[in-house]
Design a protein around this nucleic acid. Structure first.
Lengths: 242, 242
DNA sequence: TCATGTATACTACCATACCAGTATGGGTCA
DNA sequence: TGACCCATACTGGTATGGTAGTATACATGA
């Protein structure tokens, strides 16, 4: 029964742009949801968001629909829209798909990567290690994302990466929560290194198993997070985005 | 410079339903596009579709946006919306992702499937063989879709199947084109049988390679189709949905 | 004949208005 | 006191109006 907290949390929309307003609203809302500005379970009103951002309801509505497709928002007609709680089941499902796709990608990378591309990957690993040393978690998350993306793009798997991007949204809030902790980032860099080593050795099987190990890392922190932040999680037995 | 052909091709929207109009419009348009009622390259206007279906422009617009996300429609602001041509590149990319996901699914199925589920699959195989005997291609396509879906759902891979569904849209128009031909449907049933045999033998590797072989079948007919229907294909060197 | 400027008829995007359905809170009555 | 009813204030879904930008046909001129 809490009152409005006077905590808009939404950055104003850049008006000097010819990019469609709806897309900018979508990006801003997604950012706010993934970074926990809007908490799971919280209601979000088209009208309210429109007023806060200084736009009409129309583009906000389009953004809402896209967020619902992405599984971040539950639109209940004539009732309201709500930030969906984190579902362990959905995180598992997303991770399953991501693992399948990225394993196929690294197998291709191991088969096709050029020495020049491998050099680029090794440079990226160095940057990641630097970020870890500097304890710059936000920077590391950006580099991590770029690392996976660049592997995919290097072998022309643009569409596969797009699928991964859509899929990993379900995992991003978990990553955000675990970022605050002193996650063992060094281990992640080691895992990345193992992946690149296998790619450099043109060893598809090795690259696949290294990637699998890496992507299962998220499972380790999930139970603890669920215990620490029970209000953010959906504990239903069976669910999905209806 | 062709005139309106007086070929609406759109079935009227069922008005006695409380399902959102926008969703029904989306489904109808997707059906029309995938079944080549609207040809690749053809322009589609919000206003025109709204008039034909007897609804307002608003739900049509929402359907357009979803079609654009699905990669079936290209919205060019202030210019118009166009059915995207079939892109060999996109078909390849979609097939790559689909193969990755479905291989992971069958591996799980081979590990977890119960005798009862395997019986169900064998029954499905019989029905497929019957459809082939009856030369009922449409029926076979439905059974084929259900076959892949049921394998995924049987091991709880609901989300993975959703991803496959979104991905395979790019391949559906190709399937529609090849359906008209006397495609060797019997071979597809054989491949399905091989998949189930491996699942029944609890042989993940065998199931994976059987699934891979099966999903690469589409590649065989693609070059010929591109030659026969050049106008339906996009021959650009590099592209994607912008 | 051909290049160029311009009027016009589109387009999708955004804003606004209206509608049907739902949650809620307060008042009424048993 | 408690169960019920209804007014009210929301919600999202749909319809419609207005605007900026683009393509095209056509007139104009060299």
């Amino acid at each position: 029964m809490e009152r409005d907290q006077e905590r808009p949390g939404l950055r104003p929309i850049d008006m000097d742009s010819n990019e469609p307003v709806a897309r900018r609203v979508f990006r801003e809302l997604r950012r706010a949801i993934v970074s926990m500005v809007f908490l799971p379970g919280q209601a979000l009103s088209e009208q309210e968001v429109a007023t806060q951002l200084g736009v009409s309801r129309q583009p906000v509505r389009e953004a809402f629909i896209k967020l619902a497709d992405a599984g971040l928002l539950l639109i209940r007609p004539q009732r309201g829209s709500f930030i969906v709680k984190i579902s362990v089941r959905q995180v598992f499902d997303a991770r399953f798909v991501r693992e399948a796709v990225e394993m196929a990608v690294v197998a291709r990378a191991a088969a096709e990567a050029t020495p020049r591309q491998i050099d680029t990957f090794r440079t990226a690993l160095k940057r990641q290690a630097d970020a870890v040393k500097a304890r710059d978690n936000v920077r590391f998350m950006e580099l991590d994302e770029a690392f996976h993306r660049d592997i995919a793009l290097s072998v022309g798997c643009d569409y596969a990466w797009r699928v991964v991007e859509e899929t990993k949204i379900q995992m991003d809030r978990v990553r955000y929560l675990s970022m605050a902790d002193a996650t063992p980032l060094g281990r992640l860099v080691d895992q990345h290194t193992a992946i690149i080593d296998a790619i450099a050795a043109h060893d598809p099987d090795g690259a696949q198993s290294a990637m699998r190990t890496h992507l299962r890392e998220i499972l380790t922190s999930l139970p603890e997070l669920e215990k620490r932040f029970p209000a953010l999680f959906n504990h239903d037995v069976g669910d999905a985005v209806p």
